[in-house]
Write a protein that binds this DNA or RNA. Structure first.
Length: 435
DNA sequence: TTTTAGTCAATAAC
DNA sequence: GTTATTGACTAAAA
């Protein structure tokens, strides 16, 4: 299969660079691919629905392409020329990609061609519009992504490499419209106009937003799957919690004081704000996660402003595992983010020191643990232009002597911050929350 | 058991 | 109608 991939359609689709015929060692897929089927089979529901989605898409795809998709692998759209390789294998084999450049390019193409995120997400990435929006606006650097997290970027890269990508998506858009008119329109209109004040339609169990999305045939199948269950239990859908600005403000203040609050503190917060404990817990989880991502963006932008390839710059976000280089925790000098350094500091205050330390150190195995062939033919197989693939340029980030002094400075800065935070953490036990 | 990563989906904002 | 935001959830890692 590897051979097929090397010599077959992928080669054509991904515009290999001339003269790049280095061998690829089997080690790559063997060491990097964590039992290709397993991650997906564990998410059975998701797979099921995505398989449904594929089937539905098959009706609006060219048959030749549809037949390429891997059984058991949720490929919302058969990857152009993947020649039988599963997406997991492709992800495992992928060289380091510049996620920032990829998303930038995708946004550009979508905007230029008036293609929506929903269409793109559902047909190319197998993700919902919201996820696509998030992904395009806040891409994480490659080395911070898990294999699963890398998948959409590989899909995007492959899509960008497909010379007929826009054309195909346009076709889908047109067909989708027809499909909506011919298949979905009556029910869609009926539900849409009959559900004012009944966002959770008893008839279908779908909200207004769902209905809008059901305009897509592929989505329809997913929802049809959910329908029976919801018909049986139409009232189970929980209303979305919307936190008031004051509540958010209070939570942010609490976060600034204690990014990892104890269960007791969470209880207190919940009772004082009249929220469910789980809501407060979720809020902290989400906030930490999103602050962390803001840091990545900042890091990328800082790197970009310094010139060069942003998402995996040596000494900034390079994946060699040194915290002083990954930027996430060491880059305390970065400025200009609206949420400011107060939120940022929380990321340094993980529940225990060892965990915090490990996080940085763990980057090494996570980045290099998926040691795959870099540059050369793999880049060419992915058809990656130099501006997008950073693998060859950043093979050993931070090893450059020029980066060494920067690293030392950052490390010193980091130690200083950790020290101050630990001191602060030691004296903050009894908290009075002021809202 | 807790935290993180990734995602969905409701809904706000444009 | 599209995109952005965000609370909730699942799976996996620590």
């Amino acid at each position: 299969r590897m051979q097929l991939w090397l010599n077959g359609e992928l080669g054509q689709a991904l515009l290999p660079m001339p003269g790049q015929t280095q061998e690829i060692t089997p080690k790559t897929s063997a060491s990097c691919s964590p039992a290709p089927e397993s991650p997906l089979s564990s998410a059975e529901e998701s797979v099921k629905s995505q398989q449904e989605e594929q089937m539905c898409q098959a009706s609006i795809q060219e048959p030749s392409e549809t037949s390429e998709s891997q059984p058991g692998t949720p490929l919302p759209l058969p990857l152009p020329g993947h020649a039988g390789l599963s997406i997991q294998e492709m992800v495992a084999m992928s060289p380091e990609l510049d996620t920032y450049a990829i998303t930038k390019k995708v946004k550009e193409v979508l905007t230029d061609n008036n293609l929506g995120q929903r269409l793109f997400g559902e047909s190319i990435l197998g993700l919902t519009q919201g996820s696509v929006s998030d992904l395009l606006a806040r891409p994480k650097p490659w080395h911070k992504l898990s294999l699963k997290g890398r998948e959409p970027f590989v899909r995007m890269q492959l899509w960008l490499n497909d010379p007929r990508n826009v054309e195909k998506l346009m076709d889908m858009k047109r067909m989708e419209k027809k499909a909506v008119l011919h298949m979905c329109f009556p029910a869609y209109m009926k539900r849409r106009h009959s559900s004012i004040g009944e966002s959770h339609s008893l008839e279908s169990g779908l909200s207004g937003s769902d209905l809008t999305q059901s305009a897509s045939p592929q989505n329809l199948s997913q929802q049809q799957q959910q329908q029976p269950q919801q018909q049986q239990q139409p009232h189970l859908k929980k209303p979305r919690v919307v936190l008031a600005p004051e509540e958010k403000e209070a939570l942010k203040r609490a976060y600034q004081q204690k990014p990892y609050p104890s269960p007791k503190t969470i209880e207190e917060l919940a009772s004082q704000l009249n929220l469910k404990t789980s809501t407060v817990i979720n809020w902290f989880h989400n906030y930490r996660s999103r602050i962390r991502r803001e840091l990545f963006i900042e890091e990328i932008q800082a790197a970009a402003s310094e010139g060069g390839s942003p998402s995996a710059r040596p000494g900034k976000s390079g994946g060699e595992g040194d915290n002083s280089c990954d930027g996430t925790e060491s880059d305390s000098t970065a400025e200009g983010r609206p949420s400011g350094s107060e939120e940022r500091k929380g990321l340094l205050e993980s529940p225990n020191r060892s965990q915090r330390d490990e996080e940085g150190e763990a980057e090494l195995p996570s980045a290099s643990g998926t040691s795959r062939p870099r540059g050369g033919i793999i880049d060419s197989l992915f058809g990656i232009p130099e501006s997008v693939s950073t693998a060859t340029a950043t093979a050993t980030p931070c090893r450059n002597p020029k980066d060494s002094s920067l690293r030392k400075k950052k490390a010193a800065n980091l130690n200083n911050i950790i020290h101050r935070l630990e001191k602060a953490a030691n004296r903050d036990e009894p908290h009075e929350w002021e809202f």
